[in-house]
Design a protein around this nucleic acid. Sequence first.
RNA 1: GCCGGGAUGGCGGAAUGGCAGACGCAAUAGACUCAAAAUCUAUCGAUCGCAAGGUCAUGAGGGUUCAAGUCCCUCUCCCGGCACCA
Length: 817
Amino acid sequence: MNRYDHKEIEPKWQKKWEKEKVFEASDTSTKPKFYALIEFPFPSGQGMHNGHLRSNTAMDIICRKRRAEGYNVLYPIGWDAFGLPTENYAIKTGKQPSVVTKENTDTFRRQLKSAGFSFDWSREIDTTDPAYYKWTQWIFLQFFKQNLAYKKKMSINWCPKDKIGLANEEVVNGLCERCGTPVEKRDKEQWMLAITKYADRLSRDLDTVDYLENIKTQQRNWIGRSEGSEFKFKVEGAGEIKVFTTRADTIFGVTYVVLAPEHPLVDKFIQQIVNAGEVEAYVKKAKAKTEIDRTTEGKEKTGVELKGVKAINPVNGERVSVWVADYVLGGYGTGAVMAVPAHDERDFAFAHKYNLPIKEVIKGEKKNPKKTEYFLEDGILINSGKFDGMKSEEARQKITTDFGEAKVTYKLKDWIFSRQRYWGEPIPLVYCENCAQKGNGWIAVPEADLPVTLPEVKNYQPTNTGESPLSNIKEWVNTKCPACGGPAKRETDTMPNWAGSSWYYLRYVDPKNSKEFASQKLLKKWTPVDWYNGGMEHTTLHLLYSRFWHKFLFDLGLVPTSEPYSKRTAHGLILAADGEKMSKSRGNVVNPDEFITTYGADALRLYEMFMGPFDQPVSWNDDGIVGTFRFLERVWRLQEKVVSEKFVDKIKNIAGKKEKNTPKIETLLHRTIAKVTNDIEDMHFNTAISAMMILTNEFEKLDSIEIEWYKILIQLLAPFAPHIAEELWTVLKNKGFVHQSAWPKSDSTKMENKQIVMIVQVNGKVRSQFEANVGISENEAKNKAISDTNAKKYIDGKQIKRVIFVPNKLINIVVGE
RNA sequence: GCCGGGAUGGCGGAAUGGCAGACGCAAUAGACUCAAAAUCUAUCGAUCGCAAGGUCAUGAGGGUUCAAGUCCCUCUCCCGGCACCA
């Protein structure tokens, strides 16, 4: 027997797998399909990260098990390669982003292969490949044709450092998600995708998928569906103000109405506003505020009354004052609220500050709140005319039917889809002045002319004016209008990096198709994705965006299901040893390469799975990996103890011992099969590994082990540590590859011990234990317990009040004085 | 503020209401060795005891139960998400 040498074994098997194409999914197999997906990596310059390794390994384990269970498994890989880091690196080094991407993907590919993942490399895709982004552009055009992509001048989130506009989802606490710079407001024309049109379905259909509950909750909160009512407050002399409220029952308590600074009516009213100058100054200041200013200024509310403007409460005709205040958000509901200071915390604070009247209209069912406080709960209506005495719930409905209409609003906003940078998919539209005069200036590039490829440029530097660097390339920008043939200009904005990842799982099923993004036949065969694992950080970004795209494609009849992913799980982050996030700037990033060199991919894979619960964050610890490495060495050395035809003499010598050990070890073996099988499904990889360690430890204690037992251990280990398993499988003279062998089945009849240990408790405290046969009766157990030397001390002289008997486990004698 | 998740030895962690600390790391002692590494054996929550055995112990405090890390109530701290959403 040789020493366990991972450096020899691992490359050897990786080559064989590749050569024999053993992990390539079959488009024609009649086996049941299993489509497993991991988030395809962004090929950054730092190379593969331990986080990738952990989540890829987890899905790799599941896939290898599925294959052994007889599934036709699709486990694809590709590159989400558009994005700012590459572009910034290109600017710094003067290299083409495409060249940088090539270099980085080469590194990543080598690293992923060295970890032994069972990806189907024949389906590798790259979002920056024109053959791929042709279809990203094509899908965009479908949005455009359905009027779900539209250009809008709006106040956007502008990152002054990255010089790029950001989607709402990319702004975190008023800071740029990527670089942490405070985000500014800028007015700019942007392409938008109307994700809000799908808000209701995106929220509702969460009921139909198997996602982790916290993922569903986060998405629901992000979409923020809210049922309420809309009322119109007439304004004397100039139209009406629409307000949205979830508390129609409090409408008799309205003492003023507030408009957001962005509200268009502010401008419209300006003629009749007595203090117009003051109002305009306030609005200007409020609009200029950055997100971070709004949050740091906290809850201190400011506002200005629109003097000379009065609104009329539709339920009682009361004339109330109208204010503009930035505590009302322009982007939510109608951008205006009816203020009920007696029953809303914010309105109360505002009314208090500006001395506005407070009118109580809801009485608590238990006790009256103090006059100086607001009362938020439901109760009984008072001071509400004919609705007095009604309960809040009922009043909401009645008042809405009588005076307003029921309405649903969402927190979700349309997706800002333009980026003013180079390294992204060009938006395949041209602007034609000529056509614009006939009503529509934006013309789709004909499908036959796709892809609109990125031109090579010398300078990727973003411009301070907020124009894309592409706008400097005149020969690219100037083109012919596909509609009228006249001179036209290309759109120079590019798509956000979320575009290519919104549909990549569809391309995997048919990656080389040049006629369609994927054929209907293969989409029917493979989709939906059966199991998608990824990071929680993508819950409100990528995961939501791709569900939206999928539903859109479904509506066009282009994909067979309304949801892309049947099941979604999430991994915990790997933190650095100091418990902080791993990051280049902190200098605490752990590079998997050195561990693969020293201990091998198998030991590293095992360790990353063994570190802790998969869904929990774990801190990296350099020392731990020796534990799993030693475990593999021990498994390797068990070869010596294997009994086979080769060691006939040995069998004779140890025959007696073997007999004695067999029942006990078989019990453990079958329990281990069951445990590993279940734990993989539940993603409890750490306890599965521990179970295999226990089995190995027990094997070591024996003088010999049956070849069948060893074989099963190797099969169980194979998904986790595929290389060593493959090698040992061959040593055992098995044919084929270990993962092509059938997954071991546990035999429940062999899982029960004949002998068990009974725990003896007195008054719930453990006092003793004894061995007994399975199925020992309560009486027998009781007799044994009360005659037990140690237990006796606590029982003698006392009255036995009760006996609790848990079969095959425990007997508890309850005694009293 | 609201919504999730969590707190267990020196460390990572395990435990369908039924022996708390499985498994692994680190540590200590011993064997092997000229020596070291590797490996093997033993010990390894605290505390009292020669021992048998006892007591305490799962963030804090209460409760339910024959029995609580696990269920209920109150609180503290940590992590993640949302946050003036009317």
